[in-house]
Simulated scan of single mutants.
Amino acid sequence: MNPLAIGNSSSKHQLRLSWPDGREQVLDHAQLRRQCPCSQCRAFRLRGVTPLVDERVRVIELNPQGYGVQLVFSDGHERGIYPWAYLADLTSM
């Protein structure tokens, strides 16, 4: 299920998603960075290591990929493509 709308607020440090079921989701940029689904970040989490992320990190670019969205962060990290289902399952942060 793809969102109907996606918005990015750099000033509030939040990504907002509107889903077809009427649900509105607000996700914090730093938490999104910590939950990056790329292989490197997943490997860290599987070892029980939480990536160190500056709370001031921002999503500076959104690149739609059909099944999800690539998020580019202000710390230079851009490897993660966040599938829509993955984002939908993240709790509001």
Score class of each variant (00 low, 15 high):
Pro3Ile: 12
Leu4Val: 03
Ile6Ser: 07
Ile6Leu: 08
Gly7Arg: 13
Gly7Gln: 02
Gly7Ile: 05
Ser9Arg: 11
Ser9Phe: 14
Ser9Met: 04
Ser9His: 11
Ser10Pro: 05
Ser11Asn: 14
Lys12Pro: 02
Lys12Met: 05
His13Pro: 09
His13Asp: 09
His13Val: 03
Gln14Arg: 06
Gln14Trp: 12
Leu15Gln: 10
Arg16Glu: 06
Arg16Phe: 05
Arg16Met: 00
Leu17Pro: 05
Trp19His: 07
Pro20Leu: 05
Pro20Gln: 03
Asp21Met: 05
Asp21Val: 08
Gly22Met: 06
Arg23Trp: 06
Glu24Ser: 06
Val26Phe: 13
Val26Ser: 14
Leu27Arg: 09
Leu27Pro: 14
Leu27Lys: 04
Asp28Ile: 15
His29Ser: 07
Ala30Trp: 04
Leu32Arg: 02
Leu32Gly: 12
Leu32Asn: 02
Leu32Trp: 02
Arg33His: 02
Gln35His: 02
Cys36His: 08
Cys36Asn: 08
Cys36Gln: 01
Cys36Thr: 00
Cys36Glu: 04
Cys38Val: 08
Cys38Leu: 11
Ser39Val: 14
Gln40Arg: 13
Gln40Phe: 00
Gln40Ile: 14
Arg42Val: 11
Ala43Val: 13
Ala43Ile: 01
Arg45Tyr: 10
Leu46Val: 15
Leu46His: 11
Leu46Ser: 13
Arg47Leu: 15
Arg47Thr: 05
Arg47Pro: 04
Gly48Ser: 12
Pro51Arg: 06
Pro51Asn: 10
Pro51Met: 01
Leu52Asp: 14
Val53Gly: 00
Asp54Gly: 08
Asp54Lys: 02
Glu55Ser: 09
Glu55Tyr: 04
Glu55Met: 06
Arg56Ser: 15
Arg56Val: 02
Val57Met: 03
Val57Ser: 10
Arg58Ser: 03
Arg58Ala: 07
Val59Leu: 01
Ile60Leu: 10
Ile60His: 07
Ile60Cys: 05
Glu61Val: 07
Glu61Leu: 13
Glu61Lys: 05
Asn63Gln: 14
Asn63Trp: 00
Pro64Gln: 04
Gln65Asp: 00
Gln65Glu: 11
Gly66Asp: 13
Gly66Asn: 09
Val69Tyr: 03
Gln70Val: 13
Leu71His: 01
Leu71Pro: 05
Val72Trp: 01
Phe73His: 12
Phe73Val: 05
Phe73Tyr: 08
Phe73Gly: 07
Phe73Thr: 00
Ser74His: 12
Asp75Ala: 09
Gly76Lys: 01
His77Ser: 11
Arg79Val: 12
Ile81Ser: 05
Tyr82Val: 04
Pro83Gln: 14
Pro83Glu: 14
Trp84Lys: 07
Ala85Gln: 14
Ala85Ile: 12
Leu87Pro: 15
Ala88Arg: 09
Asp89His: 07
Asp89Tyr: 07
Asp89Trp: 11
Asp89Ile: 01
Leu90Asn: 00
Leu90Trp: 07
Leu90Met: 03
Thr91Gln: 10
Ser92Cys: 03
Ser92Gln: 01
Ser92Val: 06
Met93Trp: 08
Met93Ala: 13
Met93Ile: 11
Met93Asp: 12
